[in-house]
């Protein structure tokens, strides 16, 4: 006996799909309704561009945190993008299919490691190495960049590989048949054809890096200041929310929500750029 008809199945699936979208909408609505009034009340300029963050005296300038987030994210890109793209090129153009079959899932497994574990390794291994060799507190911008750089590798590598493999075989054959080496073929034709997908992989990596919280709290030191060097302790936007939310009240609490609004907007912009880049890639064929 049929319990639910075709129509019923369709309706149930539609409700589940809608619930995913509506939770996104609810989150956005909640954050904006809690955070936006603060931004208008306190003044966007004061909030975004002032240097002092001291909730006890009513100072809520998040500029140091914005700069820290930007630097940590760019640093993560400097660490992760070259490694990731080089890895993707090796796996797609040079490695044997067997190596690809083993290595690619392994790299994707990196994404499944909880961020607290990355943070733990950063604290126990990376921070002492930095402290002993380069000086400073160890828990620093540099540590954050390295840890995040590793954390974005799976995103960069797997999306880059997909877009490199999507380049038609005939391009490679045409190039090799003209006497080009594999490397010439790769950088003169294949990478150019896969460019927008590779750009998308980096931008999605950036989105991941700027949103990462736990690992950054553990390794970056968390002092509120605009970093002067890579060895300074920094606090990112995400870390600021996570560290203070548990005891914040009143204006302070609203300021943290407003910080969330800023993060939300940044990540939305990054993801939109990435999806446009991916769409360009698909439109080209």
């Amino acid at each position: 006996m049929k319990l639910v008809g075709e129509k019923g199945v369709q309706r149930i699936l539609m409700i589940t799909a809608l619930s995913a979208i509506s939770s996104l909408l609810l989150i956005a609505l909640f954050i904006f309704s809690e955070g936006l009034p603060f931004i208008f009340k306190y003044g966007a300029g004061n909030f975004l561009l002032a240097n002092e963050w001291d909730p006890n005296t009513g100072h809520f300038g998040i500029f140091p945190m914005i700069m820290s987030s930007v630097w940590v994210t760019l640093g993560a890109m400097v660490v992760g993008a070259p490694l990731g793209i080089a890895g993707a090129i090796f796996l797609s153009e040079y490695a044997s299919p067997i190596i690809m079959k083993i290595v690619k899932p392994t790299i994707e497994l990196l994404a499944a490691i909880p961020s607290v574990v990355y943070g733990f390794i950063g604290v126990m291994v990376l921070a002492p190495v930095i402290r002993n060799n380069l000086g400073g507190p160890g828990l620093s911008l540099l540590a954050g960049c390295i840890i995040l750089g590793i954390m974005i590798l799976p995103t960069v590598i797997s999306i880059s590989i997909d877009s490199i493999l999507a380049v038609p075989r005939s391009y490679r054959e045409g190039s090799l048949a003209l006497g080009a080496t594999t490397w010439q073929t790769t950088h003169m034709v294949t990478i150019k054809a896969a460019r927008s997908g590779i750009v998308a992989s980096i931008i999605l990596g950036l989105g991941r890096a700027i949103g990462e919280t736990m690992a950054v709290i553990m390794v970056a030191g968390n002092s509120v200041n605009i970093p002067n060097s890579a060895l300074d302790s920094v606090r990112t936007l995400t870390a600021n929310i996570a560290l203070e939310m548990s005891y914040a009240t009143g204006m302070h609490r609203e300021a943290l929500f407003a910080t969330g609004v800023i993060l939300f907007i940044i990540i939305m912009i990054l993801n939109s750029i990435a999806s446009v880049a991916i769409r360009n890639r698909n439109a080209k064929k």
């Binding site: 045409g174 048949a177 080009a180 150019k192 054809a193």
Partner: peptide
């Protein structure tokens, strides 16, 4: 380089006409 090949489906590179023609020379 000495034994060139034309394929079943035309396969110009996703580059300009000029860059396609001089590709082998640049290589």
């Amino acid at each position: 380089k000495n034994v060139g090949m034309v394929f079943q489906r035309p396969n110009p590179f996703p580059l300009s006409i000029y860059d396609n023609v001089v590709y082998g020379l640049r290589v």
